[in-house]
């Protein structure tokens, strides 16, 4: 009997503790879920309010698939390219035996560069690799190599990729350094002790252990580039047919002549981002389990 008496007051306290989270949930509902849900719902509506799959089907009519495809290519390209450069640089800074003082300097630099995006980043690359940019001119005047003549164009797929890489690889670097340092010295010694060469250690133990965080971080980079709008807009002025640029154009004026098709485009983006982030967190979980 005595033990059951304690229950009611505890239960009422529990309801009170939930109240502490009300402001946060209210904010999230108002400014995250309501806007997302209204985009979601109208993606499945005709202009008169009836239910339809026509908008989703419309995503597969030109030029929308091309937009998605270009965004995916730029994101994949910069995720893999930035990922590899960032990974190898992290490798160099951790196990490459470089001078110690390079490390804090590089980390600070990477922290800044990974947050340096948007309009100023576009300006920096225009000043460097634009038609009259610093490097373009040096290559032309000093080395006689006109990169624009050779097919390079900053305001194109390749130029945008080069620009995105500027914030992609430092992000990879920042995430991979702790991951590589999470490799225990004991693993390396155990492998050596069992007869493995340095290469065999990296191939069979080191890299496989890092693989989940390597791939996961690449997915993160993918999402990072996929959702980017400002850099692309400032660089190309909206001439490059990325999905974010398309959505922007739709918002500025109803270029698709169907607002609900615009909502469906946004929904498509969210779906791709969600799949990316799900993959990322799945890989992250494996990695955490291993490195515990």
């Amino acid at each position: 009997m005595a033990t059951t008496v304690q229950n009611p007051p505890r239960r009422s306290r529990l309801t009170w503790t939930w109240l502490g989270l009300v402001p946060f949930f209210l904010f999230a509902i108002l400014f995250i879920f309501l806007p997302s849900a209204s985009l979601f719902i109208d993606s499945f509506r005709t202009l008169d309010g009836g239910f339809t799959f026509a908008n989703i089907a419309g995503l597969f009519q030109p030029p929308i698939p091309e937009s998605y495809w270009l965004s995916i290519r730029v994101s994949a390209m910069t995720a893999v390219g930035g990922g590899l450069l960032g990974f190898f640089m992290a490798y160099a800074l951790t196990v490459g035996n470089l001078p110690r003082w390079l490390r804090p300097v590089t980390l600070t630099f990477a922290g800044v560069a990974s947050n340096f995006a948007g309009v100023p980043l576009a300006f920096a690359f225009i000043s460097t690799l634009g038609r009259t940019g610093f490097v373009t001119v040096i290559l032309r005047d000093l080395f006689g190599w006109n990169i624009y003549g050779a097919g390079f164009n900053l305001y194109s797929f390749i130029g945008l990729s080069v620009t995105y890489m500027y914030f992609q690889f430092p992000l990879m670097l920042l995430i991979m350094i702790p991951a590589i340092e999470g490799l225990k010295r004991d693993w390396r010694e155990a492998a050596e002790n069992l007869g493995a060469s340095t290469f065999q250690y990296w191939w069979r133990v080191g890299l496989p252990i890092l693989m989940p965080s390597l791939l996961g971080t690449m997915l993160l980079l993918f999402g990072n580039a996929f959702g980017a709008y400002a850099t692309a807009y400032a660089l190309t002025g909206g001439t490059l047919n990325l999905i974010t640029i398309q959505i922007g154009a739709q918002m500025r004026g109803d270029v698709l002549r169907n607002p609900n098709l615009g909502y469906a485009m946004a929904l498509g983006m969210v779906v791709i981002m969600a799949v990316t982030i799900l993959g990322y967190s799945w890989l992250q979980r494996i990695s955490e389990r291993w490195l515990k």
């Binding site: 004991d186 693993w187 069979r204 133990v205």
Partner: peptide
């Protein structure tokens, strides 16, 4: 020379069998 570590140092990406067979495999 075989060595056993305080932290076990088992390779987390391999099964028990793969861990045991690692030395012979390399």
């Amino acid at each position: 020379i075989g060595m056993v570590f305080q932290s076990y140092a088992l390779f987390p990406n391999m099964t028990v069998a793969d861990n045991i067979g690692f030395g012979l495999k390399v």
